[in-house]
Amino acid sequence: MLECKNLTKSYLNKIAVDRLSLQLEPGRIYALLGPNGSGKTTFMKMVAGLVKPTTGELLYDGQPIGIYSKSRIAYMPTESYFYTYMTGVDAGKYYHDFFPDFNPDRYRQLLDTMNLDPTQKIAKMSSGMMAKLKIAVTLSRDAQLIMLDEPLNGIDIIARDKIVSTIIGSFTPEKTFILSSHLVDELEKIIDHAIFIKDGVLVMEGAAEELRMERGKSIVDLYKEIYAE
């Protein structure tokens, strides 16, 4: 479904993603793991079409990133990206206007579940509320590839459970999820496959269960081992 070969993105004084090669299958929940600045966000942005690679190949369903891929891929960035005039309702309308797979009823439902007032201005929302809104708007799309960049950041514990449940509830064998996070323990139980990135380079990857059995430790412990200073 998603394939990259020697994917590289370099900036003035840094190589954000360094010859990354991956193959992602449908029907799986992938965890993209690594500390801040390891290249997770840059990778996701390249898949989302927000950043163009420096070199290497990136294909979605066999096609380069473009209009087709953008219509099937939903990306939730870490930052707040809405226009300042927008309320929750406006954000929903925007997504409805541009994405045929957006479901307004599901959106209203999700906002309700997370106790968000759709009429409130986004600019006046707390960071926690903003985080919930982003999830709501992203998961209300019936996308084929869903990439959530730090979905649990800034969210209180109770809402985290709701979000994990929503992710689980959205899952179908045709969909693929990529969750990037450094809150690994929250995700330990729901991930199928773990991808560890360090300084833009792929360090380890494999099915979560197998990694646990081979190494005799949890993904959390593996994470600590890989990224220990």
């Binding site: 799986r28 994990v164 689980i168 899952f171 139980k189 729901i190 991930i191 199928d192």
Partner: peptide, 12 residues
């Protein structure tokens, strides 16, 4: 789906 939500685990 329900069991996955109950245990908070992956449906797979």
């Amino acid at each position: 789906r329900e069991l996955a939500a109950l245990y908070q685990i992956n449906p797979n």
